[in-house]
């Protein structure tokens, strides 16, 4: 690939590894207190848990091109996006453990992570973050910056009103806005071909007169390339883009999902094409990077994540009365 930066690839590798290892630990922590009988409200991490394992290229391939001043709105499945955006991992982990030291002092939880220092937010309502990113892009334009705003959504959200209204506004106002549609093929149990009138959402970009891209087969390198182009266009005032990436959901919609709706053979097949392993192979083959360098990254990742978990686990819970604080400014 032309003009590819080795450091970008190593950055992507690190972020994808961080997300993967973070979620491996989170998966275990989530199951604590939920065995042998699964009770969604039990254990150190209660409530719903949506993991992004397998979807890492969507976040890393885009966010490698952004700075902390660019805005990201993310989904109910936000860990890979948050990690690649540079959200404080200790505070994020503490939030998911419901601790006072968390991003939202224990009030938000895993679906509601807010880190204004790196302009990151996410939410539990499908498609709802997209207009917020349009608003951020509008602000960027009004304030005459070259900052961009990126909304991550799932393919299910592309059938909501918010999606279509946002695209029209972003196009109408020619905003530095990009939407990344993470097509993991499933809206909980509903396959894409049962929810979406077109095969791929990049086609829909045409209806709004904006640029549409399709990244096939969860390819980290292609995501990197396409995103770079979209971000450059946005920064140069050339308007919004839509990128759809065919990605993989290795796990259930949420942890505890019996997944009776999909073929048992699907996930093992997807796992054979693990995007992190693919990126690793590419880096070793195409770049002057040694196995030892990658191992050093892997070690650093484990250390960073373990430190975050230690911090979260040993942090204090909020006092009950703190529930009444922070409703108003």
């Amino acid at each position: 690939m032309k003009g590819i930066d080795k450091n970008d690839l190593l950055w992507m590798y690190r972020k994808m590894k961080t997300s993967r290892y973070f979620e491996q630990r989170m998966e275990k922590a989530y199951l604590e207190g939920k065995q042998p009988v699964f009770n969604i409200g039990a254990g150190p991490v209660p409530g719903e848990m949506h993991l992004s394992t397998g979807q890492e290229p969507a976040a890393a391939g885009m966010l490698v091109h952004l700075t902390k001043d660019d805005t990201v709105t993310a989904t109910h499945r936000p860990h890979h996006q948050a990690i690649a955006k540079g959200v404080d991992l200790k505070k994020m982990t503490a939030e998911i453990f419901g601790k006072k030291t968390g991003l939202g002092k224990g009030k938000g939880g895993h679906m509601h992570l807010f880190d204004p220092d790196v302009k990151f937010s996410c939410g539990g309502i499908v498609g709802a973050g997209m207009p917020h990113a349009v608003g951020a892009a509008l602000a960027n334009k009004k304030m005459e910056t070259d900052r961009v705003a990126v909304a991550f959504i799932g393919e299910g959200a592309a059938n909501s009103g918010a999606f279509h209204e946002s695209l029209n506004l972003a196009a109408l106002w020619k905003l530095p806005f990009i939407v990344v549609v993470e097509d993991n093929a499933w809206g909980i149990s509903v396959p894409k071909n049962k929810s979406t009138s077109v095969a791929t959402n990049d086609i829909r970009a045409r209806a709004y007169g904006i640029k549409g891209y399709l990244v096939k087969d969860n390819d980290p390198m292609e995501m990197y390339r396409v995103s770079r182009e979209a971000v450059e266009r946005a920064r140069n005032g050339e308007g919004p883009s839509l990128i759809e990436i065919e990605t993989y959901r290795f796990l259930g919609h949420f942890q505890g999902d019996p997944e009776l709706y999909r073929d048992k053979a699907e996930v093992p097949k997807l796992r054979e094409k693990d995007p992190i392993e693919r990126l690793k192979k590419y880096i070793l083959k195409e770049q002057e990077v040694t196995v030892m360098e990658l191992e050093a990254i892997e070690k650093a990742v484990v250390n960073e994540v373990d430190t975050a978990f230690e911090f979260a686990i040993h942090s204090e819970f909020p006092e009950p009365e703190e529930a009444l604080e922070d409703v108003f400014a």
Partner: peptide, 13 residues
């Protein structure tokens, strides 16, 4: 107040 996430806070409200 909105329903808080952390168990101690939710129990309180």
């Amino acid at each position: 107040v909105p329903i808080p996430y952390s168990r101690v806070l939710e129990k309180f409200v």
